[in-house]
C-alpha cells in the first residue's frame, strides 16, 4: 500500500492517547476558565450597559420633571403677577373710593357746620335785635312817661282794660 494512504499503527496509537489527554487537559485548564472568564465579563458588560440605560432613562425622566416644574413655576409666576396687579388695582380703586367718600363726608360736614353757624349767627342777630328793640322801647317809654298827660292817658287806658275785663 502507498505509504501516503497507509495509516501507521504507531502514530494511531500515540495520537489516540495524546489527543484524549490533550482534550482532557485543555478542557480542565484552558477552555473552562477561558469560557468562564468570557462569560463573566459578558455578564458584567451587560449589567453595566443596562445600568447605563437605566441611568439615562432616569436622567431623561428627571429632565422632563424639571421641565415640568419650570413650566409650572412659570405659570404660577404669571398667575401671581396677574393677581398682584389685580390686587394693586383693587387697592388703588378702593383707596380712591375711600378718599372720595372721605372728601364728600368732609364736605358734607363742612356744609352742615356752615349751616349751623349761619343759623346760630341769625339766632344771635335776632336776639341782639330784640334786645336793642327792647332798649329802644324802654328809652322811648322812659321819655314819654315823663310827661304827666301821657302817664294819665296810659293809666286810664290801663284802667279801661281792667274794667272791660
Amino acid at each position: 500500500m502507498n505509504p501516503l494512504v497507509n495509516p501507521g499503527i504507531g502514530l494511531i496509537f500515540w495520537f489516540s492517547i495524546a489527543i484524549i489527554i490533550l482534550i482532557v487537559l485543555l478542557k480542565k485548564f484552558a477552555w473552562k476558565p477561558i469560557l468562564k472568564a468570557i462569560h463573566q465579563r459578558n455578564n458584567a458588560i451587560d449589567k453595566a450597559m443596562s445600568a447605563a440605560v437605566d441611568a439615562r432613562a432616569e436622567v431623561d425622566k428627571m429632565k422632563a420633571k424639571n421641565e415640568q416644574i419650570i413650566q409650572q413655576a412659570k405659570l404660577e409666576k404669571e398667575a401671581i403677577l396677574k393677581e398682584a396687579k389685580l390686587t394693586s388695582e383693587k387697592i388703588v380703586a378702593a383707596s380712591k373710593d375711600k378718599a372720595t367718600e372721605e372728601a364728600n363726608r368732609i364736605l358734607a360736614e363742612a356744609q352742615k357746620r356752615i349751616t349751623q353757624e349761619r343759623l346760630a349767627a341769625v339766632q344771635d342777630m335776632k336776639s341782639q335785635v330784640a334786645e336793642h328793640a327792647v332798649d329802644i322801647a324802654e328809652k322811648i317809654l322812659k321819655d314819654s312817661m315823663q310827661k304827666p298827660a301821657v302817664q294819665d292817658q296810659y293809666l286810664s287806658s290801663l284802667m279801661n282794660d281792667i274794667e272791660l275785663n
Binding site: G10, W14, L22, L26, I34
Partner: peptide
C-alpha cells in the same frame, strides 16, 4: 511498529505548544 516517528514527535511538540499557549491564556484572565 510503535516507534515515536517524526510525525509523532511533531504532534507531541504541537500538543505541548497548545497546552503552553492555552493554559497561559487561561491564566491571563
Amino acid at each position: 511498529d510503535l516507534s515515536i516517528t517524526k510525525n509523532t514527535t511533531a504532534m507531541f511538540i504541537s500538543i505541548l505548544l497548545l497546552l503552553l499557549i492555552f493554559i497561559t491564556m487561561a491564566k491571563s484572565y
